[in-house]
């Protein structure tokens, strides 16, 4: 096993871990945006549910209760978003911004009031977290050339929530393309009038889409604070919600392509960490901070039509008025 390949394997492994919350949020974004509702509140939902997961886990001792609470809290924020944008036809971007700010303020204020640790939650012990799961025979198969290490290092040893993220993608695709709900969801984001005249409630459909997204964001939040980390740190979402949004756009609002974008962004992040300070021949030290901006830059170029042209759902951003 040569060393460079092994390093690459480790980087890929890190990419999966870094991409997992992005995937969940991106799928949430797809649900919301395919139904015609702009969702920049992914960030806020991610942050709020990360806090709730850690706080509830710390309080109850059960990481599962924490996960449930995280999903619930994130869903409640989705309902707020829906109340503002669907029921009251408020501006979707403004509502999203409000939720992001609410989440920032709420997590710190409540965290401080409850735990008095400057906004952090108490550190979680190992059994209060979603620990790594070793897939069957990972160690035994390690000896198999190439495939063995890939199985052990890349596929095995992630937390349950990473596997949930990996499952969320095909599940989203299945719901979107194979179910009645998905058919109507895609229709309502393109031509809501078509759904309405077919005798289906546009409002309820969009609410459900948002709540579904909230659920997924909740898992992502729990991943940040109870799997990847061991407790909540203020502003721990650190723009991941926005990167997920970029991945949705990059993936042209399609689950598998968004997955690809999430991997790419995760890989970029993993490489950035690894290449920090490394002096390359010819190019010298890479400006790692600039590499972190690459997902955003690529998204801008994509949106401007310089690398293909994304086609957002036709009715996105417009409140539905009969």
């Amino acid at each position: 096993m040569n060393d460079l390949a092994f390093q690459l394997l480790l980087a890929l492994d890190a990419s999966i871990r870094l991409a997992a919350p992005l995937m969940l949020c991106a799928m949430a974004g797809i649900f919301s945006e395919r139904s015609g509702i702009v969702d920049i509140s992914l960030e806020g939902k991610l942050l709020a549910s990360a806090f709730v997961a850690a706080a509830v886990t710390a309080a109850t001792g059960s990481v599962w209760v924490g996960l449930g609470a995280a999903m619930l809290s994130s869903m409640m924020l989705s309902v707020v978003h829906g109340f503002a944008t669907i029921t009251h036809r408020g501006d979707q971007v403004v509502s999203g911004l409000a939720i992001n700010m609410l989440a920032t303020g709420f997590t710190i204020v409540v965290g401080h009031a409850v735990f008095a640790r400057g906004g952090q939650t108490p550190a979680l012990t190992d059994n209060q977290r979603f620990g790594p799961i070793t897939l069957p025979f990972a160690d035994q198969l390690n000896a198999v050339p190439v495939l063995g290490p890939i199985y052990k290092e890349l596929l095995s040893g992630h937390s349950l929530l990473v596997y949930m993220a990996l499952i969320a993608v095909p599940m989203t695709a299945f719901v979107l393309y194979r179910s009645r709900f998905g058919l109507r969801l895609r229709a309502v984001g393109e031509v809501p009038e078509a759904v309405d005249t077919a005798g289906i409630s546009v409002f309820w459909l969009r609410y459900r889409a948002l709540m579904f997204g909230g659920l997924l964001c909740g898992i992502a939040g729990a991943y940040l604070s109870t799997a990847s980390g061991a407790g909540f740190v203020r502003e721990m979402s650190a723009g991941k919600g926005y990167i997920a949004l970029a991945a949705v756009i990059f993936g042209n609002w399609q689950p598998f392509r968004a997955l690809g974008a999430c991997f790419m962004f995760g890989f970029l992040e993993a490489m950035t960490a690894r290449l920090e300070g490394v002096d390359f021949p010819v190019v010298g030290v890479l400006p790692t901070q600039l590499m972190q901006a690459l997902p955003y830059l690529l998204t801008v170029l994509l949106l401007a039509g310089f690398i293909g042209r994304p086609t957002p759902p036709a009715a996105i951003g417009q409140p539905y008025v009969k």
């Binding site: 707020v80 109340f83 503002a84 944008t85 009251h88 408020g90 501006d91 403004v94 509502s95 911004l97 409000a98 939720i99 992001n100 700010m101 609410l102 989440a103 920032t104 303020g105 709420f106 710190i108 204020v109 401080h112 009031a113 906004g119």
Partner: peptide
């Protein structure tokens, strides 16, 4: 109570004075 209470208030203001 920390000063981030203000961020919370901002969020509420944007919600009620903006989206709603």
């Amino acid at each position: 109570i920390t000063r981030e209470m203000v961020v919370l208030i901002q969020g509420l203001i944007i919600l009620f004075s903006g989206a709603l």
